[in-house]
């Protein structure tokens, strides 16, 4: 269980499908409009056509996307962790798990 949790990047329900390429639990996004206005916040939803930003005041703003307008940059702190999945050997995983088990 410990191994599954750390490799998967946190607790999830058993049999839950793997998360999408971008983790919406932790990602933030900045949206820069042609006017120069910039909006930053929690990434609520993104696809090729819309991006929805959760703001600090609890509201959300949704922006239409036409190719690269507005400019959208997603900051996903889990990306580096996910990228490692293609790099880990099974021995790496078992060694890290063995180390974690020794921690109090």
């Amino acid at each position: 269980m410990l191994q599954t949790i750390w490799v998967g990047g946190g607790l999830r329900r058993r049999r839950m499908p793997a998360p999408a390429a971008t983790s919406r639990r932790t990602a933030t996004v900045s949206v820069t409009l042609p006017s120069g206005e910039s909006v930053e916040g929690r990434l609520v939803q993104i696809d090729d056509f819309l991006v929805t930003v959760g703001l600090d005041d609890g509201t959300v703003r949704t922006f239409r996307r036409d190719d690269d307008v507005p400019k959208v940059v997603v900051h996903d702190p889990m990306k580096a962790h996910r990228d490692l999945m293609a790099v880990y050997t099974d021995k790496d995983i078992h060694d890290v798990t063995a180390y974690l088990v020794t921690l109090k």
Binding site: A18, P19, A20, A86
Partner: peptide
């Protein structure tokens, strides 16, 4: 089987 992540779709 524990699905632990995705390298993209």
């Amino acid at each position: 089987e524990a699905q632990v992540g995705s390298g993209g779709s």
